[in-house]
C-alpha cells in the first residue's frame, strides 16, 4: 500500500499520461467521511482481457519494463479501497480511453492519510509532455460545495514553463493559496 492517498492519485494520473492521452480530467472531492478521486483519459484504452490484466498484480504491461513480472499500481489502489470499506471502479474502451474512480473512507483506521495535495498537484501538472490536465478540487460541507480548478495549459501559459525551479516554486505557492482559501471557505460554511 502507498503511504498517502496523494501517492495513489499520482499513480492513477500517471497511468493516464502513459496511455498516450491528449487530455486527462481529474476530480478530487472530499467531505467529512470520504475522499473520492476520478481520473478520466482519452488514451489508448483497454479491451476486456487487458483490463483484467491491469488489475492483476502479477502482470506488467509490455514496453515499460521487459522481464518484469509485477505491476502494482492499480492492484494497490483496488486493494486499499477494498480493505478500508471504500470502492474502486475502472471502465475502459479500447481506443477511446479509461476512467478510474476510487472512494476511500477517511474514518477507517487503515485508510492512509490524505498527504500533501498541493505538492501532488504540482508534480502532476509538471509531468513531462503536452497532455492537457484539468484538476477539479472540491470540498463538501453540509451540502455546500466549494472548489477550484487547475488547468495545465493555462498555468503553462501564465508561467512560461512548468519545469524550471522558479516556475515550480511559484506554482506551489499558487496551489497552496487555492487550497488554503478552500479550507477557509469550508470552515465558514
Amino acid at each position: 500500500m502507498h503511504r498517502s492517498i496523494c501517492d495513489f492519485l499520482m499513480d492513477m494520473v500517471q497511468n493516464s499520461f502513459e496511455a498516450g492521452s491528449s487530455a486527462v480530467i481529474v476530480h478530487v472531492s472530499q467531505n467529512d467521511s470520504q475522499f473520492e478521486i476520478t481520473a478520466a483519459d482519452d488514451g489508448c484504452g483497454m479491451d476486456e482481457q487487458e483490463l483484467a490484466q491491469a488489475q492483476d498484480p502479477f502482470y506488467s504491461g509490455k514496453g515499460k519494463h521487459d522481464h518484469r513480472k509485477v505491476g502494482l499500481g492499480i492492484p494497490f489502489l483496488a486493494q486499499t479501497a477494498s480493505m478500508t470499506g471504500g470502492s474502486f471502479e475502472i471502465k475502459s474502451v479500447k481506443g477511446m480511453g479509461t476512467s478510474v474512480t476510487c472512494t476511500l473512507m477517511l474514518e477507517h483506521v487503515d485508510t492512509p492519510p490524505v498527504g500533501d495535495l498541493a505538492s501532488t498537484f504540482r508534480a502532476l501538472l509538471s509531468y513531462p509532455g503536452d497532455c492537457e490536465l484539468v484538476i477539479h478540487r472540491s470540498l463538501d460541507a453540509d451540502g455546500i460545495q466549494h472548489g477550484y480548478q487547475l488547468v495545465r495549459s493555462e498555468l503553462r501559459q501564465v508561467l512560461g514553463d512548468l519545469h524550471s525551479s522558479d516556475s515550480l516554486n511559484l506554482l506551489k505557492d499558487y496551489i497552496v493559496s487555492q487550497e488554503l482559501s478552500l479550507q477557509q471557505q469550508d470552515r465558514g460554511a
Binding site: 519494463h65 509538471s126 509531468y127 513531462p128 519545469h163 524550471s164 525551479s165
Partner: peptide, 8 residues
C-alpha cells in the same frame, strides 16, 4: 535549474 520527472 530544471526539475523534471520520468518513470521508473
Amino acid at each position: 535549474v530544471t526539475v523534471t520527472q520520468t518513470g521508473c
